[in-house]
Amino acid sequence: MEKRLHTFFESGVLDKYILDETSASECLKAELYIDTYPEVKSEYLRLQSNLEILAKADAVEAPKFILDAILNNVEQDTNPVIQMNKSHRRTPWYSIAASIVALLFAGASYMMYDQNQELLIENQAVVDEIFDLRSDIAINNQKLDDLMLQFMKLNNPETEKYVFRGNARAKNLKTVAYINTVDKTSMIDVVSLPQLGEDQFYEVWAQMEEDLVSLGIIDPSERKMQALPYMENALGLSIRIGSRKNGITNSNEEPVAQIALKSKNN
Rank of each mutant, 00 (worst) to 15 (best):
N141F: 02
F201S: 10
Y94A: 13
Q76L: 13
T159V: 04
A138S: 15
D58R: 12
P63A: 14
E254V: 06
P80S: 05
I130T: 04
E43F: 05
T159G: 07
I53P: 04
L32C: 10
M187F: 14
S25Q: 10
K161N: 02
I188Y: 01
N156D: 15
N265E: 12
I53V: 14
K245G: 07
P63Q: 09
N79F: 03
V13Y: 06
E21Q: 14
G216M: 10
T78W: 00
T7V: 05
T22Y: 01
F8Q: 11
G166R: 01
S25Y: 02
Y202F: 15
I241H: 06
A206K: 02
E203K: 12
V182N: 10
F164P: 00
S11M: 03
F151H: 13
E158G: 06
K29W: 02
L54W: 00
Y33Q: 12
Q117G: 11
N50G: 11
V213C: 07
D58V: 13
N167V: 01
L71P: 03
R134I: 04
L235G: 05
S11N: 07
M231D: 00
A170I: 01
I100P: 06
L261S: 15
N246L: 02
L47A: 01
M112K: 12
N79K: 04
K3H: 12
T249D: 12
K262T: 13
N140R: 10
I18H: 03
A102C: 11
N155K: 02
K161W: 00
I100W: 08
F131S: 15
L120S: 02
Y202P: 05
I217Y: 06
K16M: 13
I241M: 06
Y44N: 08
V81C: 04
A206R: 03
W205C: 05
N167E: 08
V190I: 14
M208S: 12
N156E: 12
V163D: 14
G197T: 04
A168E: 15
Y178F: 15
I121S: 07
D183H: 05
A170E: 00
T185N: 06
E75I: 11
K171N: 02
K143R: 15
S243C: 09
I248H: 12
Y230F: 15
V127T: 10
I179Y: 03
I259E: 07
A168H: 09
S42V: 04
Q142G: 13
N85C: 14
Y44D: 01
Q258P: 01
G242M: 03
T22W: 00
A55F: 04
E75N: 09
Q200N: 14
Y33N: 09
